[in-house]
Design a protein around this nucleic acid. Structure first.
Lengths: 119, 119
DNA sequence: TAGCAACATGAAGAATTCTTCAATTCTACA
DNA sequence: TGTAGAATTGAAGAATTCTTCATGTTGCTA
């Protein structure tokens, strides 16, 4: 049996879905729990409709869910331990960036903050 | 202090770097140890110069190193536990794909094989 | 040194992805 | 019903990324 979509392509698509600053920030914010678009908008510096576009990408991939609550729409992580993924990525990034002082400093700062959540 | 390159942008770039089927396969293959381009080429269905282009992307990001050994060039993971990252990604993918039978089956098959290595 | 094999690089067109703007849906509430 | 706020959608041009082809470089071996 030949897979209709090769596994390594599904993986690539998954990572590509993560490959946008706004989408990363959304996922990070949602790790603290569900959050309405309004709040995401307040914390991420981006235009409303651009945020909507990025949220649509995340929704299509299935990594987040959206539910309407009256006036507002609340987003949440669909499942899966996104925090784990971010942690693993940060470990690698830390090594890759050794030598690039500024980013490294930020990463370490984030590490200190990352007790229950992971930035 | 304002970072010259925001952290979330570095993260996004990192994931974007992973967002290509050939690059994923290279990283997976290299988890079993360093490997010359010739062997990568034998296992990944892609044209030689396309592979070179993708290897260049990986090299620029710093996630792999290349060393010349006489005739051939040998690639290796630069460090960092790439396997961890892949594992975390697979965990999430498994959930996202629940319902998409074919891919799910492949993922589970891969899980079974993944004793010391992670596909 | 000539020739060949292994890789890398440069560049151009094709394909994707981003950003932004205008238009739309849905809800609340006066 | 009419208006306003919250969020999404559609579409178009800009910007990136991919693929491919031609050319370059390096090292082996005759």
């Amino acid at each position: 049996m030949v897979a209709p979509v090769p596994l390594y392509q599904a993986k690539a698509e998954f990572f590509r879905m993560l490959g946008h600053p706004v989408r990363i920030r959304v996922l990070e914010l949602l790790q603290d729990g569900p959050m309405p678009v309004r709040d995401l908008l307040a914390q991420i510096e981006v235009e409303r409709s651009n945020l909507s576009q990025q949220l649509a990408v995340l929704r299509r991939s299935g990594i987040v869910t959206a539910t309407r609550e009256g006036d507002t729409v609340v987003y949440a992580l669909a499942g899966g331990d996104v925090a784990d993924l971010m942690r693993a990525a940060r470990r690698i990034l830390t090594e890759l960036l050794a030598g690039q002082q500024d980013l490294l400093a930020e990463l370490q700062e984030a590490d200190r903050d990352a007790v229950a959540k992971s930035a």
